[in-house]
Amino acid sequence: MQNILEVKNLSKKYKGFELKNVSFNLQKGMIMGLIGENGAGKTTTIKAILNIINSDDGNIKIFNLEMKENEKQIKEDIGVVLDDSFLSDYLNAIDINKVMKNIYQRWDENLYFKYIEEFKLPKDKIIKEYSSGMKMKLKITVALSHNPKLLILDEPTSGLDPIARNEILDILQEFIQDEEKAVLVSSHITSDLEHIADYITFISNGKIIFTKTRDELIDNYGIVKCSKEEFKKIKPKDFIKYKKNKYEYEILIENKNEFKKKYKIDVIDKATIEDIMIIYIKGEK
């Protein structure tokens, strides 16, 4: 299947933080969740992909074109939602259309107002008076209204109630219905991505820990809970990391079924993405 986005060896050094050799690919028709703790480098990665910050090293290809050389052409086909930044707080939905139809060559006014109606967004209220859910839906509307092929969203569900979050996940799944498009969405609310994301890319402390399909993670990964004695019997090559709690050991394993064949331990739970994240970050080997 064809890649829509290729990130290769992306590196950027800041004081106190470094993005190190970040690489991953996103294929057509797929939703990729970019997860990681706050400050792990999710936003920096997204900014570097979009050439908003100059990376020190690395290469970005979007729609099979080099980003640095075809920036304007590529950006005509990308829709972006940023967590904490937008056009202005003092415009209303009608004003935004007036601005945006000059920005994108393929801006679709009718589509824009169709979404505005569908999401029940008031047209004449300034954005400052919107609720956070409405604001996010407006941002997504703007990101969708020039018919992009790639949607990049930075924390689109943070600060929203479950109902609004649900609606946003619906929009994303609707977006990839035709198989030519793809979504890259970062979030620290992992349960949102646990359902709809096809791929999960886990970034921690500026480095990619893994990119895996959702099914690989949820169906195979497991959390073993056991006593100290039982833990001592487990070979290091059979688990990823462990976390010592007050009353038990929590051990992250890559394959529940194989583990069950080798060891006689009763409690093996399904691992949620959150569990995996926590043990990777907090656990030891």
């Binding site: 996940l169 709809i196 096809d198």
Partner: peptide
């Protein structure tokens, strides 16, 4: 595959599998 994934709110790859 895609519409089933959407309606069940699950990943496309899961449905494909």
């Amino acid at each position: 595959i895609r519409s089933l994934a959407k309606d069940l709110r699950i990943s496309v790859i899961t449905t494909k599998n």
